[in-house]
Design a protein around this nucleic acid. Sequence first.
DNA 1: ATTATAGGTAAGTTATATTGACATATTATA
DNA 2: TATAATATGTCAATATAACTTACCTATAAT
Lengths: 145, 145
Amino acid sequence: MKELLYLKDDQLKDLIEKIFVGYRETFSDSKKILDKYSIGLAHQKVIHLLSMYEGISISKLLAKLKVTKQSLNRVLKDLIKLEIIVFKKDEIDTRIKHVFLNEKGKKIFEEIFLLQKKRIYNALLDSSSEEVINFDKVLKKIING
Amino acid sequence: MKELLYLKDDQLKDLIEKIFVGYRETFSDSKKILDKYSIGLAHQKVIHLLSMYEGISISKLLAKLKVTKQSLNRVLKDLIKLEIIVFKKDEIDTRIKHVFLNEKGKKIFEEIFLLQKKRIYNALLDSSSEEVINFDKVLKKIING
DNA sequence: ATTATAGGTAAGTTATATTGACATATTATA
DNA sequence: TATAATATGTCAATATAACTTACCTATAAT
């Protein structure tokens, strides 16, 4: 029988608070740049995913974001107005729309990311590779729980 | 000179996505219970902090949540209507108000927490103590970055 | 006496998301 | 070929959580 300190409620509460704060801080560092382009957190997340998954389809974006179509479309319309995304129909199944950041979009992403990544970069730089690997490992388990 | 894989942009992007998903999942498991009491994520966070820091002052709550007084007060008023929090003036400095969950509040917290903690508990149970310690270590560094 | 701190409130606004209903185009299948 | 399923879009109404700006009281510290 396991009887570990970190499985006790107090430690679990503490971790949950840290997960919240870690998220909030990670996604607030870039606020100034977002303001510069009059966009918000929702736009940042979409841009982030577009930079990771070039040409991702709408339905896959929806699945990753776990928001409704209506919610995503509001954001996409803003990004179209900003002229930073483009669409390409799938050549085989023309129902599917692939979304891409254009050059301007990639530049704006880099501006955002430059600020956002600092916090993570410094934390990892200050950690051993084993610590980093274990951080990733546990985070994955939390996600797939 | 460090030249580590996990300090590369692609890995940082990946981690940032995971931090987002980990937060979202961690705070969505308890949605059914929140609905039962007609409260939301903001209330859950306040209740969580009240269970961790019994008698915390308003200003310290504000500092932990990083929201405005108006925002917090909306939530506190809902919790008063639900009859789950009580206030006590500080005996020395009567400007300070200490906030507590009452018995009903503690019970509701336990209902919420029971659902919320499962994901974290299982992830930790499935990890070695070193992995857990390193997860906590890196998360702390991200927060304090 | 003055200033700072702790907390409260009012009005209006913004950001992000929801539900429900309906529409179109395309592809897959019986 | 008729029908069902999929991918996407849109309208309208609503909810949640936050914001800004401004002003207020009470108490404590200097």
